Amino acid sequence: MNEQELRKRLEALKSEHRDLDTAIAALVETGREKGYTDQLQIARLKKRKLRIRDQIAAIEDTLLPDIIA
């Protein structure tokens, strides 16, 4: 992938990460209102969110390599 494609992918992943944050918060809030939460669904979303965070970090490392001074 070239730099432009990496930046597009990075933005898409960040957007998905924010969306997952919103979805998790909504599930927790809905669970409070109903008196139970779908822990399995929340765990799956959190796991996906962690995988996305790792992908974001990998792309950022590629775009901004370490500079040894």
Rank of each mutant, 00 (worst) to 15 (best):
M1A: 14
M1W: 06
M1N: 11
N2E: 00
E3T: 13
E3V: 08
Q4M: 08
E5N: 06
E5H: 07
E5V: 01
L6Q: 04
L6R: 00
L6C: 04
R7Q: 05
R7C: 08
R7F: 04
R7A: 11
K8D: 01
K8I: 05
L10N: 05
L10I: 02
L10Q: 09
E11M: 04
E11F: 05
A12V: 02
A12N: 09
K14N: 08
K14R: 12
K14A: 05
S15R: 13
S15F: 11
H17L: 03
H17G: 03
R18D: 11
R18C: 04
D19A: 10
D19E: 09
D19I: 02
D19R: 03
L20M: 05
L20D: 00
D21K: 07
T22M: 04
A23N: 14
A23P: 02
A23K: 15
I24R: 04
A25L: 03
A25M: 07
A25D: 04
A25Y: 01
A26F: 00
A26E: 10
A26S: 09
A26M: 05
L27M: 12
L27Y: 11
L27P: 06
V28K: 01
V28R: 02
E29N: 06
E29T: 07
E29F: 01
E29P: 01
T30Y: 03
T30C: 03
T30M: 10
G31N: 09
G31T: 09
R32W: 10
R32I: 07
R32F: 06
E33H: 02
E33N: 07
E33W: 02
E33T: 06
E33M: 03
K34S: 09
G35C: 07
Y36S: 13
Y36C: 08
T37I: 10
T37H: 13
D38T: 10
L40T: 15
L40R: 15
L40Q: 11
Q41E: 10
I42E: 15
A43W: 09
A43Q: 10
A43K: 11
R44C: 13
R44L: 15
L45D: 13
L45K: 15
K46Y: 04
K46T: 06
K47M: 14
K49N: 08
K49P: 05
K49S: 09
L50Y: 15
L50P: 06
R51G: 12
I52D: 02
I52E: 04
I52V: 05
I52N: 05
R53K: 11
R53Y: 10
Q55W: 07
I56Y: 02
I56F: 04
A57C: 10
A57N: 12
A57V: 11
A58E: 11
A58F: 14
A58W: 01
A58Q: 02
E60K: 10
E60H: 00
D61P: 00
D61C: 00
D61K: 13
D61S: 09
T62R: 09
T62V: 11
T62H: 02
L63H: 05
L63E: 12
L63K: 00
L63F: 04
L64E: 05
L64F: 07
P65H: 09
D66F: 08
I67N: 14
I67F: 14
A69Q: 09
A69P: 14
A69N: 12
A69F: 12
